[in-house]
Amino acid sequence: MEHDSTLYVGLDVHKESITAAYAIDMGEVELLGKIGTTTTDIDRLCKRLQSKARRVCIVYEAGPCGYDLYRRLVDEGFECMVCAPSLIPKKPGERVKTDRRDAVKLTRALRAGDLSAVYVPGVEDEAFRDLARAWVSAKEDLKQARQRLKSFLLCHGVRYDGKADGGPAHRHWVHGYSFGSEWQQMAFEEHRRTIEDRQAQCMRLETPLRDAVVSWRFYPAVLGLQAMRGVQLTTAVGMLAEVGELARFEHPRQLIAWLGVTPSEHSSGDKRRQGSITKTGNSYARKLLIEAAWSYRHPARLSLDIRRRHEGIPKAIVDRAWEAQLRLCRRYRKLSLRGKNVNIAAVAVARELAGFIWDISRLAMALAVPRDARYA
């Protein structure tokens, strides 16, 4: 055992197998072979690695297998990194891809320090994120079910005179309508029952989510973010569940880059070319951010709903939220007057909104917003 050496290990992880490669210090990269993914296989791998060097650094790509392997390796005392697959260096013209080559490539990149780590949430944060994602998925399913019913009715020339928003009047009309054909009526009933099932599912998930968010460690940030315009419970919980610990971003520019709302750039010499946003990072968090940004196209004001969400919130956060509203509404108006496309203006506002979210969430956690404050 080389006590003063560092062992670099690259793992190509799949559902049923793990291919490992390693290198000791600056030595040649060697293959360790393919193993299974059971607890016994992982324990045997850990013992083999511990016998080779005192300091062991391990890396594998983020993927569908999650972070269970990461937590096992950290518990064994190893230094482990879960790297971003899209940021792994790749040689131009490289056309051969195998598990062995991937493991070797990861080992070399880890030793060179060329990999970017992804954020690994804690067990409790990941559990809450799973609950939030299930809620979001149920709401998306409900939206699609309603759209399928609208398409079915439109296809048969059936139109509702009012606003088909799923409200009480619209639901009463849907329940009272019937088709002349037995088969069409059967299809119509299935569409309607699907909507009712999805609504029941949303209610089953929303109730425990609202109860659980009160005991979540980021609950003060949830309350603080809702002091802002366009940020209600869905947006605040979704953003924090996906982003996680905002304190890991030392500057708001890092959060903005992580959300993928920074302009892409291809500059050389005296020429500076900027393109569309990078769209890196978490797509759902970026979607929530841009949806919230659309509310700033209207003049700045404090609605009754926002005033209600301000109850119990420290004045410093309320003042910061009002400052954000004034700035972002003015920003959207200036871009519109310059003839910018409305979508480009909304993304530009979203970029600045991310900075205010970073600031207000950190301020809320520092001030420890009272847990008895209201949330929408």
Rank of each mutant, 00 (worst) to 15 (best):
M1L: 09
M1S: 13
H3K: 11
T6R: 12
V9A: 06
K15N: 07
E16Y: 08
I18N: 06
A20W: 10
A20H: 04
E28P: 03
E28C: 01
V29I: 15
L32I: 06
L32W: 03
T38H: 09
D41R: 05
R48Y: 00
D68F: 05
E79C: 11
V82D: 02
P85I: 13
L87A: 12
K91N: 06
T98L: 07
G113M: 13
P121M: 04
D125S: 10
E126R: 11
L131E: 07
L131W: 06
A132D: 07
W135S: 15
S137P: 00
Q144V: 13
A145D: 10
K150T: 08
F152T: 01
L154N: 08
H156Q: 07
G157K: 08
V158R: 12
K163F: 12
K163M: 05
R171L: 13
V174N: 10
Q185K: 11
A187E: 10
E189Y: 06
D197T: 06
Q201E: 14
C202K: 02
T207G: 00
D211V: 07
D211I: 00
Y219W: 07
V222Q: 01
V222Y: 01
L225C: 01
A227N: 11
M228L: 15
R229D: 04
T234C: 05
G238V: 01
M239G: 00
L255W: 05
N282D: 14
A324M: 15
K334G: 08
K340E: 05
N341K: 10
I344H: 03
A348Q: 01
A350H: 04
E352Y: 12
A354E: 05
W358N: 11
D359H: 13
V369C: 02
A373C: 12
R374C: 05
